[in-house]
Amino acid sequence: MSYCGERGTDILLFLENALTGQRLEDFHAHSAGCSNCRERLQEELALTSLLRETRPLYLAPQALRDRVAAAASAQQAFANSPPSDRSRETRMEKLTRWLRDVTPPVFGWKPLVAMMLVLTLSLVFIPGAVQMVRANNFVEAATEIHQSYLDGNLPLQCRSRSPEVVTDWFAGKTPFHFQLPIPQSVPESKALYWLTGAGLVSYKGNTAALVAYETPTEKISLLVASSKSVAVAGGEELRSAGLTFHYRSGANFEVITWTNHGLAYALVASVTGSPQHSCLVCHQNMANQNLVKH
């Protein structure tokens, strides 16, 4: 029986047609007279057959394929971008570190403006899990729309600082339900950002919402579209409050995109000095700071 035990390797090789020459002949000769080895061979054949029938053992989700393809594409685009853009590679890392380390007394209002607006908007508009999909076109569209808005080629159709008024204005105009968050009351003199109005734009043949904000120094826009027509992925990722934000920095603008509950968001602001400022747009009340503590 110990002799048969040593045949284990030969059986494996035989199954793989890797047994040749004299060794193969010996194997056949032995198997012909050894019921143990014949039985073992049959068991091995059955196992091999079963394993082959169950190929592939797992099927990768299509969403994973999409995500990898998008991320690879974004990585390639980044690698091909000018060096000036590549120098921003670690901005999200810096931002992440900033988020981790931030404590309210140490920072001024500017960094918080950026961070808290993103968090408030995301938490109010789209609480829950995030689904990432491809976003190059969405980012390009968002920056083009923002540029048009800055150039005055895209006048706001609704001008108001009231979230309620803007929300009412959107009612029935977009193919999705869309409600602006109502921030806690802050005296106007202390406001870090404010809503200026809204408009409708077209993205991939569908109506999308454009919401405009301002800080004392710049204009910021938020493009909102149904995630059915939008892909969101790539860039540097920041995970916070259950959401995944994709941060991209181009020559002129910084863009943060995210999705959830069927809506995709692109927040566009001008490139400024501090990385955290790009996350921006705006929670005025300090109570929101607990959203960015890690």
Binding site: Q42, E44, A46, L47, L50
Partner: peptide
């Protein structure tokens, strides 16, 4: 093989046929 002994009962018969 040991863990799949019951499953292999069917497959084994197919293998024998081969």
């Amino acid at each position: 093989r040991s863990l799949l002994s019951s499953t292999l009962g069917l497959t084994d018969r197919r293998a024998k046929g081969v």
